[in-house]
């Protein structure tokens, strides 16, 4: 008899609260609070378990320096509170955006190192392409709804293991003004497909961006 592993899935809720503040002409700080709630987990075509519980809390702080009109370098730290443990992550990122007629493209290159108690150091290389698209006219104006699309590739190295995760993040946003944006979308992630059956994760995402 041949056993075939079934692809697993998780469904959860991921609210994000992001606050940005300029601290000088060239420097800004960005803080994000992102708890995760897991709702359902199971295997496609198999059993599933419905159990709503708080999974973890991420608090990320990134200091950014403007290095060109549309480009910034960032250095950050993330604290992850999960199961009475705290994981620490160092973040380095380079990002830039390019405006086009009716939309912008944002490129983000990120490297991070995660230190979790009783686990090997995890190093990840990430690239994310995202776009905010105006639904009416050349620019997204105050009180307009917009579309945001994101696609991220994450390669991770931990001990002897290597994995690739792909994320697709479509969202609908409401541009209240330049300092306040609200987004609702899906954060879909697939990983483990290189060495075994893929794991699929779907996060219902509600994000709020505030600039002070």
């Amino acid at each position: 008899m041949q056993l075939q592993a079934q692809a697993g899935y998780e469904l959860g809720f991921l609210p994000e609260f992001n606050v940005g503040k300029s601290i000088s002409t060239l420097w800004a700080v960005n803080v994000e609070i992102a708890p995760r709630y897991e709702l359902v987990a199971g295997a496609f075509g198999g059993d599933s378990e419905r159990d709503i519980y708080f999974g973890l809390l991420d608090v990320t702080t990134v200091f950014e320096r403007t290095i060109a009109v549309d480009a910034k370098l960032g250095l950050g730290y993330l604290a992850r509170f999960e199961n009475n443990k705290v994981a620490h992550r160092l973040i380095q990122q380079y990002s830039f955006s390019i405006p086009y007629y009716g939309y912008r493209l944002g490129h983000r290159f990120r490297v991070d190192q995660t230190f979790t108690p009783d686990e090997d150091l995890e190093v990840r290389l990430r690239y994310r392409l995202s776009s905010d698209i105006s639904l009416n006219g050349e620019f997204i104006d105050p009180k307009e709804i917009y579309i945001k699309l994101g696609n991220e590739y994450v390669t991770s190295f931990q001990g002897q293991e290597t994995d690739v995760e792909i994320r697709l993040i479509p969202a609908l946003g409401y541009y209240i003004d330049d300092d306040h944006k609200l987004e609702v979308g899906i954060d879909y992630r697939i990983d483990s497909f290189l060495r075994s059956t893929a794991d699929h994760r779907f996060w219902v995402n509600v994000g709020y961006y505030l600039s002070l």
Binding site: N18, G20, N30, E32, V62, E64, V69, D70, K72, G74, Q93, S95, S97, P99, R104, L105, G106, R108, S130, S131, D132, F139, I140, K148, G173, D178, D179, K181, E183, Y209, S211
Partner: peptide, 10 residues
């Protein structure tokens, strides 16, 4: 004056 692009960076 460009619109803030924080939604594309974070």
């Amino acid at each position: 004056i460009s619109r803030s692009d924080n939604i594309l960076r974070f």
